[in-house]
Computed example of a mutant assay.
Amino acid sequence: MTTVLVEHGTVRTGRRVLTDGWVLLRDGVVTALGEGAAPAPDRAAAEVVDASGATVVPGFVDLHCHGGGGEQFGGTGEAAVRSARTVAATHRAHGTTTLVASLVSRPPAELRETVAALADLVGDGVLAGVHLEGPWLSPLHRGAHDPALLQPPAPADVEDLLRAGGGAVRVVTLAPELPGGLDAVRRVAGSGAVAAIGHTDADAELARAAVDAGARLATHLFNAMPPVHHRAPGPVVALLEDERVVVELIADGVHLHPLTVAHAAHSAGPRRTALVTDAMAAAGGADGDYLLGDLHVEVRGGTARLAPGGSIAGSTLTMDRALAFAVHEAGLDLDDALAAATSVPAGLLGRADRGHLEPGATGGAVLLDAELRVLRVLA
């Protein structure tokens, strides 16, 4: 058993702030915390980490990530597992200890094989689940998805993929306007997974109908959906206004302007805003040429775009940078931004053990410097 005592930091548990605080973790699980001096027996038995000048926060939770460290989620068998471990390790180094593996559009039979390959990693806690982003998406707002693979959600395919990997699928993004779309939302929600609205041409009324059917998440709000118009508010306004919906925001300055991040976060409120990376293989790496699914992506200046075409193809974002952008560029309150990177997405996944630093939390702790850069990850 590994026991670590973090002391003399500002501890933001997600529920309170401890000045000159300490946190005791055993194998990444919070067992005790407080202010001032830690109990002598605990201190004597632990590796002691001096967090003076640092902020101690819960491990980050990312609902939407496709890759990192030069690898992407996908494939089959041991190759899929090796790639997934590389992606998880890359984002873990940047503070993300709870990661959902997002898969781009592929044929349903191939997706089933990938989900089955990743199921053990979900069971072991390396991954928090699998997110199917496609193939049930609108060709009008396909983003970096192969249009040849997009299709309406056939009930048999939906049921098959929801059963794959023993329930490893935790999030499903789909366009509710497709034939069978609302029924698919009901099936996903009924399975216990999170139904998400994204890559959609739905209007406001249909977006509301999808929420009534059980959708609870807006996939990368604003991106891959109709823009807001004063006479046609579209899905963006409908989803921001609905108290039942959590909205994803990609806070990288490429997908969204800082003012847009601020406006959406203030409109939804701190209980309904989730920062996500939508990261692809180049996250944590260098500019160059990569793949997203089978599509070629050029990363230049840290921005990923399809080649050819120029459509944004995911991001090179890590969650520590998303947090810093939300605070320093968009002007969000630190505690609100932390909630968007921890407790809100954890709650959406039904993980009461993640996203906070109170006793029993299993997501570990992250030490941040004054610029919100990661100093150390303890998980």
Rank of each mutant, 00 (worst) to 15 (best):
G123H: 06
V366P: 14
T173M: 07
D278E: 03
D252M: 03
P233T: 09
A148Y: 04
V297T: 00
V87W: 04
R376K: 01
D212M: 04
P41I: 09
R216N: 12
A189N: 04
R85G: 04
L249M: 13
L63R: 05
D203G: 13
S267H: 15
V56F: 09
R16H: 11
R15C: 06
A93G: 08
H255W: 10
A232N: 01
V115Q: 05
A262Y: 08
P179W: 13
T173L: 05
T55L: 12
E113C: 10
H8T: 12
G301N: 03
T97E: 03
A340W: 11
E329K: 15
E329Q: 15
T98C: 10
T98F: 07
R208C: 12
E248I: 08
A282T: 01
M280W: 02
S311M: 04
V81I: 10
A89N: 06
G75Y: 05
G331D: 11
A213E: 15
L18R: 07
G34M: 08
M225G: 06
A189K: 00
L338E: 07
G364E: 15
V172R: 00
D294G: 02
A54N: 05
A164G: 05
A365Q: 02
G302F: 10
A40W: 05
A193G: 07
L338R: 14
H199E: 13
L150V: 01
L33F: 11
S191A: 09
L292D: 01
T31L: 15
V49M: 10
V247N: 05
S343G: 08
